[in-house]
Design a protein around this nucleic acid. Structure first.
Lengths: 237, 237
DNA sequence: GACGATAATGAGTGATTACTCGCGTTTCTA
DNA sequence: TAGAAACGCGAGTAATCACTCATTATCGTC
């Protein structure tokens, strides 16, 4: 019965004109989603913002979700490319320098438009397939860091998640972010954490209750993509 | 003219019966929002989940947002109460124990229903007034921690935000969370960070460069935390 | 410049939504 | 036990939404 809900363009642009149209739709969608949020970012509004008729929009996107998904996919591709870039060059020696690579990548990912990032990653219904891709990207970063620093996955999960979350929050909370200061502080925190973990010495806290649990693996990031099947998470009518 | 869009109940329950009704509506709303998300959590669905007619729902809530707001307000009150509880008892001596209080409070706040927490804090339209309250709560926590540990506000922002964000993410990402392990790991990270910071700053906070900007308080409208003033200063890499 | 292919149009459609209002039912008070 | 106040009801309404389709405009090629 043919897939009832396609998420890919229904028509492939043949001329430059329509390629531009698709681009205009995506950029307008980004703007509209940022300004109105996903739910209130109606397709008519997007078409209007793109100086386009609603019909033209539906020539290239079968439904509203497909537009968002295209936007998300671009972000995922950017993230994947960022990780690829980190790996393709020789790794730096120091712990700080290695962390710097990941921190810089996270900041870069948010720099474009943090509000769009917010809409995409927090406010929108994402189909399980995309969610899995997102999770996979996160897991990839965790895995690479774990290997690169030779640390348990739970520790790597902490580091990667800290970088992502704090960057997200810092930029969201501070209208005029001071990136270098933030970067430095974040690196300090993670460096001290990792040095302590590496030393694995009950430095100050001989109290056995306080010794860091060496991550009964698997319980940690391993379960990464178990996405506890949220039932109707999608807004989709 | 009367406010065109009230967000408070339009009718105050006089009998036990209607008080129960209001409670049922709120609990049903929580369930529906969790299951369908905010946008698809329609008022009719909420009424149905509460075994109530849609008309009755609108006896006590002037519109859909008002229901959500009541839910958010409860969360804010819980958070405020949690901070109050921390302060009313004598403070523990060790750094770890102090951090434990905040970590435990954050985990508690999420334990109820992390998915509801998600809907409330990430997916829903929150009016500026509420957003300001949320920000104020965060700022309060930052302020108390800064005072309690005698550290700069940026450092306290890092600690509080890390606790909040990582707890949120950890619970969201791990269907079967191991709270003690998480708690311990988080404490380890923050303890090492704070010990390093303290060590790097001779005689703690007497250094004038590090005095926390007391953040022209009360700026409820202003984006709460402008505290990125000279942050990395004392971190002496 | 003719003609088929590609692109753009926008009023219209059916579904869904938040919310209303007139009326029946239960509870309180005397 | 009667009357009033509080409560509960749910079909109905206007608005809004995602999306369609018959039509017109533009492009590429000869």
């Amino acid at each position: 019965m043919a897939d009832p809900k396609r998420l890919r363009p229904r028509k492939t642009p043949r001329q430059q004109r329509s390629a531009d149209t698709v681009e205009r739709i995506l950029q307008a969608a980004a703007r509209v989603f940022v300004e109105h949020g996903y739910a209130a970012g109606t397709t008519n509004r997007i078409a209007e913002a793109a100086n386009l008729s609603i019909g033209s929009l539906y020539q290239y996107f079968p439904n509203k979700d497909a537009i968002l998904i295209q936007l998300v996919r671009r972000h995922i591709d950017d993230g994947t490319a960022a990780i690829g870039k980190i790996l393709e060059r020789p790794l730096p020696d120091t712990l700080e320098a290695k962390l710097d690579l990941f921190i810089a990548a996270a900041i870069d990912a948010h720099r474009g438009d943090p509000r769009l990032h917010r809409v995409i990653f927090e406010e929108s219904p994402r189909p399980p397939a995309l969610l899995a891709e997102l999770h996979a990207l996160h897991d990839t970063a965790v895995g690479h860091l774990a290997a690169m620093l030779d640390i348990p996955r739970l520790t790597a999960w902490f580091v990667i998640t800290t970088i992502e979350s704090l960057t997200h929050r810092y930029i969201g909370d501070h209208p005029e972010p001071d990136y270098p200061a933030f970067h430095t502080e974040l690196r300090t925190m993670l460096t001290t954490y990792l040095e302590h973990t590496a030393a694995a010495v009950p430095s100050r806290c001989d109290d056995p209750r306080l010794t860091p649990r060496r991550a009964t693996e698997g319980a940690g990031a391993g379960t990464g993509s178990q996405d506890h099947g949220r039932p109707g998470a999608g807004v989709s009518r």
